[in-house]
Nucleic acid binder design. Structure first.
Lengths: 252, 252
DNA sequence: CGTGCTTTTGAAAATCATCAAGTATAGTGG
DNA sequence: CCACTATACTTGATGATTTTCAAAAGCACG
Protein backbone atom coordinates (compact mmCIF):
# COMPACT_ATOMS: atom_id res chain seq x y z
CA UNK A 1 0.00 0.00 0.00
CA UNK A 2 1.17 3.52 -0.68
CA UNK A 3 2.70 5.19 2.36
CA UNK A 4 0.57 7.94 3.85
CA UNK A 5 2.28 11.26 4.31
CA UNK A 6 2.03 12.74 7.77
CA UNK A 7 -0.12 15.80 8.43
CA UNK A 8 -1.69 15.64 5.02
CA UNK A 9 -4.53 13.97 3.24
CA UNK A 10 -2.26 13.32 0.33
CA UNK A 11 -1.47 9.69 -0.20
CA UNK A 12 0.99 9.50 -3.00
CA UNK A 13 4.05 11.69 -3.13
CA UNK A 14 3.26 14.96 -4.83
CA UNK A 15 4.92 15.19 -8.16
CA UNK A 16 4.90 17.94 -10.71
CA UNK A 17 5.52 15.60 -13.71
CA UNK A 18 2.83 14.49 -16.10
CA UNK A 19 2.85 17.77 -17.97
CA UNK A 20 -0.53 19.27 -18.83
CA UNK A 21 0.12 18.63 -22.51
CA UNK A 22 -0.11 14.91 -21.87
CA UNK A 23 -3.05 15.10 -19.44
CA UNK A 24 -5.96 12.96 -20.60
CA UNK A 25 -8.37 14.91 -18.46
CA UNK A 26 -7.53 18.14 -20.21
CA UNK A 27 -10.08 17.82 -23.00
CA UNK A 28 -12.92 17.90 -20.47
CA UNK A 29 -11.52 20.49 -18.10
CA UNK A 30 -10.97 24.22 -17.91
CA UNK A 31 -7.33 23.71 -18.85
CA UNK A 32 -8.53 23.08 -22.37
CA UNK A 33 -9.21 26.79 -22.72
CA UNK A 34 -5.49 27.42 -22.98
CA UNK A 35 -3.64 27.17 -26.25
CA UNK A 36 -1.47 24.02 -26.17
CA UNK A 37 1.63 26.17 -26.45
CA UNK A 38 0.71 27.88 -23.17
CA UNK A 39 0.22 24.64 -21.28
CA UNK A 40 3.72 24.60 -19.89
CA UNK A 41 2.84 27.78 -17.99
CA UNK A 42 0.06 25.79 -16.40
CA UNK A 43 2.27 22.81 -15.68
CA UNK A 44 4.63 25.17 -13.88
CA UNK A 45 2.08 26.02 -11.18
CA UNK A 46 0.29 22.68 -10.99
CA UNK A 47 1.11 19.66 -8.87
CA UNK A 48 -0.56 16.31 -9.28
CA UNK A 49 -1.29 13.83 -6.51
CA UNK A 50 -3.28 10.72 -5.79
CA UNK A 51 -6.01 10.30 -3.19
CA UNK A 52 -7.13 6.92 -1.91
CA UNK A 53 -10.76 5.98 -1.75
CA UNK A 54 -12.58 7.30 1.30
CA UNK A 55 -10.09 10.03 2.05
CA UNK A 56 -11.15 13.63 2.70
CA UNK A 57 -8.98 15.97 0.66
CA UNK A 58 -10.94 19.17 1.25
CA UNK A 59 -12.03 19.95 4.78
CA UNK A 60 -15.01 22.28 5.16
CA UNK A 61 -13.85 25.39 6.97
CA UNK A 62 -10.14 24.82 6.33
CA UNK A 63 -7.99 27.52 4.82
CA UNK A 64 -8.66 27.62 1.08
CA UNK A 65 -5.11 27.44 -0.15
CA UNK A 66 -5.66 25.59 -3.43
CA UNK A 67 -7.78 25.16 -6.47
CA UNK A 68 -8.26 21.57 -7.63
CA UNK A 69 -8.89 19.83 -10.87
CA UNK A 70 -9.99 16.20 -10.91
CA UNK A 71 -8.03 14.17 -13.42
CA UNK A 72 -9.23 10.70 -12.40
CA UNK A 73 -11.84 9.16 -10.09
CA UNK A 74 -14.88 10.65 -8.39
CA UNK A 75 -15.40 12.66 -5.21
CA UNK A 76 -18.43 13.62 -3.19
CA UNK A 77 -18.76 17.27 -2.12
CA UNK A 78 -20.73 17.93 1.03
CA UNK A 79 -21.75 20.27 3.79
CA UNK A 80 -22.37 19.23 7.38
CA UNK A 81 -24.57 20.34 10.24
CA UNK A 82 -23.13 20.23 13.78
CA UNK A 83 -25.12 17.09 14.68
CA UNK A 84 -23.80 15.17 11.69
CA UNK A 85 -26.60 15.65 9.19
CA UNK A 86 -24.98 15.86 5.81
CA UNK A 87 -25.97 17.28 2.45
CA UNK A 88 -24.00 16.18 -0.57
CA UNK A 89 -24.00 19.13 -2.96
CA UNK A 90 -22.52 17.28 -5.89
CA UNK A 91 -20.22 14.64 -7.25
CA UNK A 92 -16.98 15.70 -8.91
CA UNK A 93 -15.52 13.50 -11.61
CA UNK A 94 -12.91 13.84 -14.32
CA UNK A 95 -12.55 17.41 -15.50
CA UNK A 96 -14.32 19.03 -12.56
CA UNK A 97 -12.78 22.21 -11.24
CA UNK A 98 -13.05 22.67 -7.47
CA UNK A 99 -12.46 25.37 -4.95
CA UNK A 100 -14.18 28.48 -6.25
CA UNK A 101 -14.49 29.72 -2.68
CA UNK A 102 -15.40 33.28 -1.94
CA UNK A 103 -14.04 33.42 1.53
CA UNK A 104 -10.59 32.37 2.63
CA UNK A 105 -11.95 29.02 3.76
CA UNK A 106 -13.59 26.16 1.88
CA UNK A 107 -17.36 26.21 2.19
CA UNK A 108 -17.64 22.46 1.60
CA UNK A 109 -15.75 19.24 2.15
CA UNK A 110 -14.65 16.71 -0.46
CA UNK A 111 -14.02 12.99 -0.08
CA UNK A 112 -12.85 10.48 -2.68
CA UNK A 113 -15.40 7.81 -3.66
CA UNK A 114 -12.80 5.96 -5.70
CA UNK A 115 -9.05 6.22 -5.98
CA UNK A 116 -8.46 9.65 -7.49
CA UNK A 117 -5.83 11.72 -9.16
CA UNK A 118 -6.03 15.43 -8.59
CA UNK A 119 -4.22 18.45 -9.91
CA UNK A 120 -3.89 21.41 -7.60
CA UNK A 121 -2.90 25.05 -7.97
CA UNK A 122 -1.90 27.55 -5.34
CA UNK A 123 -4.67 30.16 -5.38
CA UNK A 124 -2.26 33.07 -5.47
CA UNK A 125 -0.33 31.65 -8.42
CA UNK A 126 -3.58 30.81 -10.15
CA UNK A 127 -4.59 34.46 -9.90
CA UNK A 128 -1.46 35.45 -11.79
CA UNK A 129 -2.29 32.89 -14.41
CA UNK A 130 -5.81 34.25 -14.76
CA UNK A 131 -4.37 37.71 -15.29
CA UNK A 132 -2.09 36.34 -17.93
CA UNK A 133 -4.76 34.30 -19.72
CA UNK A 134 -8.16 36.00 -19.69
CA UNK A 135 -9.48 33.11 -21.78
CA UNK A 136 -8.99 30.91 -18.72
CA UNK A 137 -11.03 33.29 -16.64
CA UNK A 138 -13.75 33.28 -19.25
CA UNK A 139 -13.79 29.51 -19.10
CA UNK A 140 -14.03 29.52 -15.32
CA UNK A 141 -16.96 31.88 -15.52
CA UNK A 142 -18.69 29.50 -17.91
CA UNK A 143 -18.07 26.60 -15.56
CA UNK A 144 -19.34 28.56 -12.58
CA UNK A 145 -22.46 29.59 -14.50
CA UNK A 146 -23.12 25.97 -15.46
CA UNK A 147 -22.73 24.87 -11.87
CA UNK A 148 -25.09 27.58 -10.77
CA UNK A 149 -27.74 26.32 -13.18
CA UNK A 150 -27.22 22.79 -11.89
CA UNK A 151 -27.47 24.01 -8.31
CA UNK A 152 -30.79 25.68 -9.04
CA UNK A 153 -32.08 22.51 -10.62
CA UNK A 154 -31.05 20.66 -7.48
CA UNK A 155 -32.90 23.19 -5.32
CA UNK A 156 -36.04 22.43 -7.32
CA UNK A 157 -35.46 18.75 -6.68
CA UNK A 158 -34.81 19.15 -2.95
CA UNK A 159 -37.59 21.64 -2.35
CA UNK A 160 -40.40 20.34 -4.49
CA UNK A 161 -39.93 16.83 -5.84
CA UNK A 162 -41.21 13.60 -4.26
CA UNK A 163 -38.87 10.77 -3.33
CA UNK A 164 -39.74 8.90 -6.53
CA UNK A 165 -39.15 11.97 -8.65
CA UNK A 166 -35.82 12.60 -6.93
CA UNK A 167 -34.55 9.10 -7.60
CA UNK A 168 -35.79 9.22 -11.19
CA UNK A 169 -34.04 12.57 -11.70
CA UNK A 170 -30.88 11.19 -10.20
CA UNK A 171 -30.80 8.09 -12.39
CA UNK A 172 -31.62 10.02 -15.55
CA UNK A 173 -28.94 12.62 -14.79
CA UNK A 174 -26.39 9.91 -14.04
CA UNK A 175 -27.21 8.18 -17.30
CA UNK A 176 -26.88 11.46 -19.20
CA UNK A 177 -23.57 12.27 -17.59
CA UNK A 178 -22.06 9.08 -18.94
CA UNK A 179 -20.34 9.19 -22.26
CA UNK A 180 -18.86 12.64 -22.28
CA UNK A 181 -16.62 11.06 -24.89
CA UNK A 182 -18.28 10.13 -28.18
CA UNK A 183 -16.45 6.83 -28.44
CA UNK A 184 -18.04 5.56 -25.27
CA UNK A 185 -19.36 2.04 -25.67
CA UNK A 186 -22.33 2.75 -23.44
CA UNK A 187 -24.40 4.18 -26.25
CA UNK A 188 -27.29 1.78 -26.29
CA UNK A 189 -30.38 3.06 -28.13
CA UNK A 190 -32.46 4.37 -25.25
CA UNK A 191 -32.91 1.68 -22.72
CA UNK A 192 -30.73 -1.07 -21.35
CA UNK A 193 -28.24 1.59 -20.40
CA UNK A 194 -25.94 0.51 -17.61
CA UNK A 195 -25.44 3.24 -15.02
CA UNK A 196 -22.62 2.74 -12.51
CA UNK A 197 -23.28 4.08 -9.03
CA UNK A 198 -19.88 4.53 -7.38
CA UNK A 199 -21.54 6.04 -4.30
CA UNK A 200 -23.33 4.21 -1.45
CA UNK A 201 -27.07 4.36 -0.78
CA UNK A 202 -26.19 6.68 2.07
CA UNK A 203 -24.46 9.04 -0.33
CA UNK A 204 -27.42 9.00 -2.69
CA UNK A 205 -29.71 9.71 0.25
CA UNK A 206 -27.56 12.61 1.40
CA UNK A 207 -27.51 13.97 -2.14
CA UNK A 208 -31.29 13.75 -2.59
CA UNK A 209 -32.34 14.85 0.89
CA UNK A 210 -33.75 11.42 1.78
CA UNK A 211 -32.83 8.50 4.05
CA UNK A 212 -31.02 5.33 3.09
CA UNK A 213 -34.18 3.34 3.60
CA UNK A 214 -36.27 5.52 1.31
CA UNK A 215 -33.63 5.31 -1.41
CA UNK A 216 -33.50 1.53 -1.12
CA UNK A 217 -37.27 1.11 -1.05
CA UNK A 218 -37.79 3.44 -4.00
CA UNK A 219 -35.20 1.67 -6.14
CA UNK A 220 -36.72 -1.69 -5.22
CA UNK A 221 -40.10 -0.39 -6.29
CA UNK A 222 -38.70 0.94 -9.58
CA UNK A 223 -37.42 -2.55 -10.22
CA UNK A 224 -40.77 -4.12 -9.33
CA UNK A 225 -42.37 -1.73 -11.81
CA UNK A 226 -39.94 -2.77 -14.49
CA UNK A 227 -38.34 0.64 -14.83
CA UNK A 228 -34.86 -0.47 -13.83
CA UNK A 229 -32.82 -3.55 -13.15
CA UNK A 230 -30.38 -3.82 -10.24
CA UNK A 231 -27.74 -6.43 -11.13
CA UNK A 232 -25.77 -5.40 -8.05
CA UNK A 233 -25.89 -2.59 -5.52
CA UNK A 234 -23.41 -0.41 -7.37
CA UNK A 235 -25.02 -0.51 -10.77
CA UNK A 236 -28.49 -0.11 -12.23
CA UNK A 237 -29.75 -0.72 -15.74
CA UNK A 238 -32.37 1.59 -17.14
CA UNK A 239 -35.23 -0.41 -18.62
CA UNK A 240 -37.84 2.29 -19.23
CA UNK A 241 -36.04 5.53 -19.83
CA UNK A 242 -39.10 7.50 -20.92
CA UNK A 243 -41.06 6.54 -17.83
CA UNK A 244 -38.15 7.60 -15.64
CA UNK A 245 -37.75 10.84 -17.55
CA UNK A 246 -41.37 11.86 -17.21
CA UNK A 247 -41.24 10.99 -13.52
CA UNK A 248 -38.09 13.10 -13.20
CA UNK A 249 -39.67 16.14 -14.82
CA UNK A 250 -42.67 15.92 -12.53
CA UNK A 251 -45.20 14.58 -15.01
CA UNK A 252 -47.20 12.11 -12.98
CA UNK B 1 -51.01 54.52 -13.92
CA UNK B 2 -48.16 53.98 -16.33
CA UNK B 3 -49.33 52.64 -19.67
CA UNK B 4 -48.37 49.04 -20.31
CA UNK B 5 -46.49 48.43 -23.51
CA UNK B 6 -47.95 45.75 -25.71
CA UNK B 7 -46.12 42.41 -26.18
CA UNK B 8 -43.60 43.23 -23.50
CA UNK B 9 -43.12 42.90 -19.81
CA UNK B 10 -41.66 46.36 -19.72
CA UNK B 11 -43.87 48.94 -18.13
CA UNK B 12 -42.11 52.19 -18.47
CA UNK B 13 -40.63 53.34 -21.74
CA UNK B 14 -37.07 52.10 -22.05
CA UNK B 15 -34.64 54.92 -21.74
CA UNK B 16 -30.88 54.92 -21.93
CA UNK B 17 -30.46 58.04 -19.72
CA UNK B 18 -29.42 57.91 -16.07
CA UNK B 19 -25.77 57.34 -16.91
CA UNK B 20 -23.96 54.69 -14.91
CA UNK B 21 -21.84 57.37 -13.25
CA UNK B 22 -24.92 58.63 -11.44
CA UNK B 23 -26.35 55.19 -10.64
CA UNK B 24 -26.92 54.75 -6.92
CA UNK B 25 -26.93 50.99 -7.27
CA UNK B 26 -23.44 50.97 -8.70
CA UNK B 27 -21.60 50.77 -5.37
CA UNK B 28 -23.20 47.41 -4.65
CA UNK B 29 -23.10 45.94 -8.13
CA UNK B 30 -20.61 44.45 -10.56
CA UNK B 31 -20.46 47.77 -12.40
CA UNK B 32 -18.38 49.06 -9.53
CA UNK B 33 -15.48 46.98 -10.84
CA UNK B 34 -15.01 49.45 -13.67
CA UNK B 35 -12.98 52.58 -13.26
CA UNK B 36 -15.35 55.60 -13.19
CA UNK B 37 -13.75 56.91 -16.35
CA UNK B 38 -14.85 53.74 -18.18
CA UNK B 39 -18.44 53.94 -17.05
CA UNK B 40 -19.62 55.70 -20.18
CA UNK B 41 -18.66 52.58 -22.11
CA UNK B 42 -21.06 50.71 -19.88
CA UNK B 43 -23.78 53.33 -20.23
CA UNK B 44 -23.49 52.95 -23.98
CA UNK B 45 -24.67 49.35 -23.93
CA UNK B 46 -27.10 49.55 -21.01
CA UNK B 47 -30.76 50.48 -21.05
CA UNK B 48 -32.77 51.10 -17.91
CA UNK B 49 -36.45 50.31 -17.45
CA UNK B 50 -39.09 50.02 -14.76
CA UNK B 51 -41.08 46.91 -13.89
CA UNK B 52 -44.31 47.05 -11.94
CA UNK B 53 -44.92 44.84 -8.96
CA UNK B 54 -46.05 41.33 -9.85
CA UNK B 55 -44.78 41.41 -13.39
CA UNK B 56 -42.64 38.62 -14.83
CA UNK B 57 -39.64 40.10 -16.61
CA UNK B 58 -37.69 36.88 -17.19
CA UNK B 59 -39.57 33.89 -18.52
CA UNK B 60 -38.06 30.48 -17.82
CA UNK B 61 -37.17 28.88 -21.12
CA UNK B 62 -37.30 32.10 -23.12
CA UNK B 63 -34.41 33.13 -25.32
CA UNK B 64 -31.68 34.58 -23.09
CA UNK B 65 -31.08 37.82 -24.91
CA UNK B 66 -30.07 40.01 -21.99
CA UNK B 67 -28.13 40.31 -18.79
CA UNK B 68 -29.86 42.27 -16.04
CA UNK B 69 -28.77 44.34 -13.12
CA UNK B 70 -31.26 45.31 -10.44
CA UNK B 71 -31.03 48.99 -9.55
CA UNK B 72 -34.15 49.25 -7.38
CA UNK B 73 -36.75 46.93 -5.84
CA UNK B 74 -36.75 43.16 -5.32
CA UNK B 75 -37.55 40.18 -7.53
CA UNK B 76 -38.14 36.52 -6.89
CA UNK B 77 -36.31 34.00 -9.06
CA UNK B 78 -37.95 30.65 -9.54
CA UNK B 79 -38.19 27.37 -11.37
CA UNK B 80 -41.42 25.55 -12.13
CA UNK B 81 -42.55 21.96 -12.56
CA UNK B 82 -45.18 21.19 -15.22
CA UNK B 83 -47.95 20.81 -12.63
CA UNK B 84 -47.27 24.22 -11.11
CA UNK B 85 -45.05 23.30 -8.20
CA UNK B 86 -42.60 26.11 -7.77
CA UNK B 87 -39.18 26.50 -6.21
CA UNK B 88 -37.94 30.00 -5.56
CA UNK B 89 -34.18 29.84 -5.94
CA UNK B 90 -33.46 33.30 -4.61
CA UNK B 91 -34.48 36.89 -4.19
CA UNK B 92 -32.71 39.54 -6.22
CA UNK B 93 -32.44 43.04 -4.81
CA UNK B 94 -30.39 46.15 -5.51
CA UNK B 95 -27.06 45.31 -7.06
CA UNK B 96 -27.90 41.75 -8.08
CA UNK B 97 -26.63 40.65 -11.45
CA UNK B 98 -28.96 38.28 -13.33
CA UNK B 99 -28.87 36.09 -16.36
CA UNK B 100 -25.67 34.06 -16.13
CA UNK B 101 -27.28 31.41 -18.30
CA UNK B 102 -25.21 28.68 -19.87
CA UNK B 103 -27.63 27.77 -22.57
CA UNK B 104 -29.32 30.15 -24.97
CA UNK B 105 -32.43 30.18 -22.81
CA UNK B 106 -33.06 31.36 -19.27
CA UNK B 107 -33.08 28.51 -16.79
CA UNK B 108 -35.30 30.39 -14.36
CA UNK B 109 -38.04 32.98 -14.25
CA UNK B 110 -38.06 36.32 -12.45
CA UNK B 111 -40.98 38.34 -11.14
CA UNK B 112 -40.99 41.71 -9.42
CA UNK B 113 -42.07 41.68 -5.75
CA UNK B 114 -42.05 45.45 -5.62
CA UNK B 115 -41.84 48.16 -8.25
CA UNK B 116 -38.39 47.73 -9.74
CA UNK B 117 -35.86 49.47 -11.87
CA UNK B 118 -33.62 47.29 -13.94
CA UNK B 119 -30.64 47.81 -16.16
CA UNK B 120 -30.18 45.43 -19.04
CA UNK B 121 -27.39 44.61 -21.45
CA UNK B 122 -27.52 42.74 -24.74
CA UNK B 123 -25.52 39.59 -24.11
CA UNK B 124 -23.47 39.94 -27.29
CA UNK B 125 -22.49 43.51 -26.49
CA UNK B 126 -21.73 42.52 -22.93
CA UNK B 127 -19.28 39.95 -24.24
CA UNK B 128 -17.37 42.68 -26.07
CA UNK B 129 -17.30 44.67 -22.89
CA UNK B 130 -15.93 41.71 -20.95
CA UNK B 131 -13.17 41.35 -23.51
CA UNK B 132 -12.38 44.99 -23.15
CA UNK B 133 -12.45 45.02 -19.34
CA UNK B 134 -11.12 41.79 -17.83
CA UNK B 135 -11.63 43.33 -14.40
CA UNK B 136 -15.37 43.13 -15.06
CA UNK B 137 -15.07 39.46 -15.87
CA UNK B 138 -13.11 38.93 -12.67
CA UNK B 139 -15.89 40.61 -10.76
CA UNK B 140 -18.53 38.46 -12.43
CA UNK B 141 -16.59 35.36 -11.49
CA UNK B 142 -16.50 36.52 -7.89
CA UNK B 143 -20.24 37.09 -7.93
CA UNK B 144 -20.90 33.70 -9.50
CA UNK B 145 -18.67 32.01 -6.92
CA UNK B 146 -20.53 33.76 -4.11
CA UNK B 147 -23.87 32.67 -5.52
CA UNK B 148 -22.61 29.14 -5.81
CA UNK B 149 -21.69 29.12 -2.13
CA UNK B 150 -25.13 30.48 -1.28
CA UNK B 151 -26.77 27.85 -3.48
CA UNK B 152 -24.91 25.08 -1.66
CA UNK B 153 -26.00 26.51 1.66
CA UNK B 154 -29.58 26.48 0.39
CA UNK B 155 -29.22 22.84 -0.67
CA UNK B 156 -28.20 22.02 2.88
CA UNK B 157 -31.29 23.83 4.10
CA UNK B 158 -33.66 22.16 1.64
CA UNK B 159 -32.20 18.71 1.99
CA UNK B 160 -31.48 18.45 5.68
CA UNK B 161 -33.06 21.13 7.85
CA UNK B 162 -36.40 20.94 9.65
CA UNK B 163 -39.16 23.46 9.05
CA UNK B 164 -38.21 25.39 12.18
CA UNK B 165 -34.55 25.45 11.17
CA UNK B 166 -35.46 26.62 7.67
CA UNK B 167 -37.53 29.52 8.94
CA UNK B 168 -34.87 30.47 11.47
CA UNK B 169 -32.20 30.38 8.75
CA UNK B 170 -34.38 32.51 6.51
CA UNK B 171 -35.03 35.17 9.13
CA UNK B 172 -31.39 35.32 10.23
CA UNK B 173 -30.21 35.58 6.63
CA UNK B 174 -32.75 38.28 5.89
CA UNK B 175 -31.64 40.22 8.93
CA UNK B 176 -28.00 39.88 7.91
CA UNK B 177 -28.71 40.99 4.36
CA UNK B 178 -30.05 44.29 5.61
CA UNK B 179 -27.67 47.16 5.96
CA UNK B 180 -25.28 46.57 3.12
CA UNK B 181 -24.62 50.24 3.70
CA UNK B 182 -22.87 51.14 6.97
CA UNK B 183 -25.04 54.20 7.55
CA UNK B 184 -28.18 52.08 7.75
CA UNK B 185 -30.34 53.06 10.72
CA UNK B 186 -31.33 49.47 11.33
CA UNK B 187 -28.25 48.75 13.41
CA UNK B 188 -29.81 47.87 16.71
CA UNK B 189 -27.53 46.03 19.11
CA UNK B 190 -28.51 42.43 18.43
CA UNK B 191 -32.19 42.07 18.94
CA UNK B 192 -35.18 44.23 18.19
CA UNK B 193 -34.07 44.25 14.60
CA UNK B 194 -36.90 44.97 12.19
CA UNK B 195 -36.80 42.67 9.18
CA UNK B 196 -39.03 43.60 6.24
CA UNK B 197 -40.55 40.68 4.33
CA UNK B 198 -41.54 42.01 0.91
CA UNK B 199 -42.57 38.53 -0.20
CA UNK B 200 -45.77 36.64 0.65
CA UNK B 201 -45.98 33.56 2.88
CA UNK B 202 -46.41 31.59 -0.32
CA UNK B 203 -43.13 32.94 -1.63
CA UNK B 204 -41.36 32.09 1.61
CA UNK B 205 -42.84 28.60 1.44
CA UNK B 206 -41.68 28.14 -2.15
CA UNK B 207 -38.23 29.36 -1.17
CA UNK B 208 -37.91 27.03 1.80
CA UNK B 209 -39.55 23.96 0.30
CA UNK B 210 -42.54 24.13 2.66
CA UNK B 211 -46.24 25.00 2.44
CA UNK B 212 -47.89 28.30 3.27
CA UNK B 213 -49.53 26.75 6.30
CA UNK B 214 -46.29 25.42 7.73
CA UNK B 215 -44.61 28.80 7.29
CA UNK B 216 -47.49 30.55 9.02
CA UNK B 217 -47.69 28.06 11.88
CA UNK B 218 -43.94 28.09 12.45
CA UNK B 219 -43.79 31.89 12.58
CA UNK B 220 -46.74 31.92 14.95
CA UNK B 221 -44.93 29.46 17.17
CA UNK B 222 -41.72 31.51 17.09
CA UNK B 223 -43.78 34.43 18.31
CA UNK B 224 -45.39 32.35 21.05
CA UNK B 225 -41.89 31.34 22.12
CA UNK B 226 -40.82 34.96 22.28
CA UNK B 227 -38.24 34.66 19.52
CA UNK B 228 -39.88 37.14 17.19
CA UNK B 229 -42.63 39.71 17.01
CA UNK B 230 -44.96 40.06 14.05
CA UNK B 231 -46.27 43.64 13.96
CA UNK B 232 -47.79 42.95 10.57
CA UNK B 233 -47.60 40.20 7.97
CA UNK B 234 -44.86 41.88 5.96
CA UNK B 235 -42.49 42.55 8.80
CA UNK B 236 -41.03 40.66 11.72
CA UNK B 237 -38.93 41.87 14.64
CA UNK B 238 -36.21 39.63 15.94
CA UNK B 239 -36.45 39.30 19.72
CA UNK B 240 -34.00 36.49 20.41
CA UNK B 241 -31.36 36.52 17.75
CA UNK B 242 -29.08 33.99 19.41
CA UNK B 243 -31.85 31.45 19.79
CA UNK B 244 -32.76 31.89 16.14
CA UNK B 245 -29.15 31.61 15.08
CA UNK B 246 -28.52 28.37 16.93
CA UNK B 247 -31.73 26.97 15.50
CA UNK B 248 -30.60 28.04 12.04
CA UNK B 249 -27.25 26.32 12.36
CA UNK B 250 -28.89 23.09 13.47
CA UNK B 251 -28.00 23.20 17.15
CA UNK B 252 -31.08 21.91 18.85
C1' DC C 1 -16.19 -19.53 6.84
C1' DG C 2 -16.69 -15.98 10.02
C1' DT C 3 -16.82 -10.84 10.65
C1' DG C 4 -18.26 -6.41 9.55
C1' DC C 5 -20.30 -3.56 6.44
C1' DT C 6 -23.97 -2.25 3.22
C1' DT C 7 -28.41 -3.05 1.71
C1' DT C 8 -33.03 -4.55 2.10
C1' DT C 9 -37.36 -5.12 4.34
C1' DG C 10 -40.92 -4.45 7.96
C1' DA C 11 -43.59 -1.90 11.51
C1' DA C 12 -44.44 2.17 14.05
C1' DA C 13 -43.99 7.11 14.57
C1' DA C 14 -43.58 11.89 13.18
C1' DT C 15 -43.22 15.75 10.54
C1' DC C 16 -45.21 18.14 7.29
C1' DA C 17 -48.96 18.41 3.68
C1' DT C 18 -53.70 18.65 2.57
C1' DC C 19 -58.29 19.99 3.26
C1' DA C 20 -61.31 23.28 5.29
C1' DA C 21 -62.89 27.31 7.60
C1' DG C 22 -62.45 31.52 9.64
C1' DT C 23 -60.00 36.16 10.15
C1' DA C 24 -57.28 40.07 8.73
C1' DT C 25 -55.83 43.27 5.24
C1' DA C 26 -55.77 46.01 1.18
C1' DG C 27 -57.55 47.84 -2.66
C1' DT C 28 -62.01 49.48 -5.17
C1' DG C 29 -65.85 51.82 -6.06
C1' DG C 30 -69.90 53.92 -4.42
C1' DC D 1 -65.18 57.98 4.03
C1' DC D 2 -66.96 53.62 4.33
C1' DA D 3 -68.74 49.36 2.83
C1' DC D 4 -67.43 45.54 -0.22
C1' DT D 5 -64.71 42.33 -2.43
C1' DA D 6 -60.60 39.90 -3.23
C1' DT D 7 -56.57 38.29 -1.48
C1' DA D 8 -53.49 36.92 2.01
C1' DC D 9 -52.91 35.00 6.32
C1' DT D 10 -54.04 32.15 10.32
C1' DT D 11 -55.82 28.21 12.64
C1' DG D 12 -57.76 23.53 13.15
C1' DA D 13 -58.51 18.62 11.92
C1' DT D 14 -57.09 14.91 9.23
C1' DG D 15 -54.01 12.33 6.36
C1' DA D 16 -49.91 10.69 3.88
C1' DT D 17 -45.26 10.52 2.72
C1' DT D 18 -41.18 9.89 4.69
C1' DT D 19 -38.46 9.00 8.81
C1' DT D 20 -37.18 6.30 12.58
C1' DC D 21 -36.42 2.09 14.83
C1' DA D 22 -35.42 -2.70 14.30
C1' DA D 23 -33.80 -6.80 12.28
C1' DA D 24 -32.70 -9.85 8.60
C1' DA D 25 -30.27 -10.71 4.27
C1' DG D 26 -26.24 -9.92 1.03
C1' DC D 27 -21.68 -9.19 0.10
C1' DA D 28 -16.71 -8.39 0.52
C1' DC D 29 -12.63 -9.44 2.74
C1' DG D 30 -9.41 -11.57 5.57
Amino acid sequence: MTPIRARSTVVEAIRPPEPCVACEARVCSVCNALHPSDLDRLSAVATSFGVESGRTFIEEGALAEFFFNVTAGTAKLFKLLPDGRRQITGFASVGTFLGLAVSTTYSFGAEALEPMRICRFQRARMRDLLDEFPVLERKLLEVAAAELVAAQEQMLLLGRKTARERLASFLVARAASLCPLPDCNNRRPRNQQRVPLPMTRGDIADYLGLTIETVSRTLTRFRAEGMIDIPNASEIVIQAREALESLATGLR
